[in-house]
Design a protein around this nucleic acid. Sequence first.
DNA 1: ACCGGTTGGTCAAGCAGATTGACTATAGGA
DNA 2: TCCTATAGTCAATCTGCTTGACCAACCGGT
Lengths: 148, 148
Amino acid sequence: MQNSEAMALSAALLAVAGELTHRINEGVVARGFEGVRPAHGFAFARLAPGGATVTDLAAHLGVTKQAASQLVDEIVRKGYAERRPHPQDARARLVVLTEQGWACTRAAEEAAAEAVGAWVELLGEGEMSVLRDQLARIAPHGPLRPAW
Amino acid sequence: MQNSEAMALSAALLAVAGELTHRINEGVVARGFEGVRPAHGFAFARLAPGGATVTDLAAHLGVTKQAASQLVDEIVRKGYAERRPHPQDARARLVVLTEQGWACTRAAEEAAAEAVGAWVELLGEGEMSVLRDQLARIAPHGPLRPAW
DNA sequence: ACCGGTTGGTCAAGCAGATTGACTATAGGA
DNA sequence: TCCTATAGTCAATCTGCTTGACCAACCGGT
């Protein structure tokens, strides 16, 4: 593959990612959740299964734990999560979603389905499942990084 | 498609985009271009064809023109671009890449090819061209937005 | 049991990138 | 010739993140 093709592919991918993020965020806001930023969604995704510590979250988001702690402060203040004592470790605190946090997560899923649905119109169901499979195969396992 | 599938697809796409951005930037830095941020690459892409005004850049990057102007200040200071009087409009200034700017752009293309090359190992040539085609079809035409 | 190093979390200060607001100079149509 | 829209900059401010310092709790070896 030529370098210029790789660049065009990269640009398309990043444009799609940026647009997707924007649409999901718009959709969440449109559903009545104000003051949420895209980064919160990634935090919610990590918190959802059963809570997480600030350090877990920091590693997941690829930021310092101070930054993660500030983000938690913010979503706690806005009512999306709460800090609880950690059952096994007295130093740690388990951050878990509140009911409002779950509602916001569901709203994000709906918004994502809406945005992705637009692609189905362009690609068709068959190619969409191919795309999903391909992305799953090349997705990294490291921390989620902001695109730029 | 279920909401949870859309969310998984979105997460995979954003993870891939974040990783790609990170790798391209790493590759550019490794080739000796210091003090460059991912956002600069998107600016370079817009400047490359024949220069652009600050206002063009602002629209392309989806930021205010003050922010775009500051970014131009930075890449000018670092020697990647220069401001010239605009041939048609005395108010405007045409920002064009210097030779160093072109070199950096080529380095970014190489880094992109390297990063994308890793996917070829996972998907094979055939599926890669499918992916390229699919992304090109769903890529938006609006401004490039930071992923989060 | 205790001690030393590691780990989870917060406080505080500072920085970098972006925004809003105000302003000047040129463009361009009525 | 106005009058408005546009290109660009200056200045102040905000926000999210980083670095650095610190305390409390865990845990392995002795």
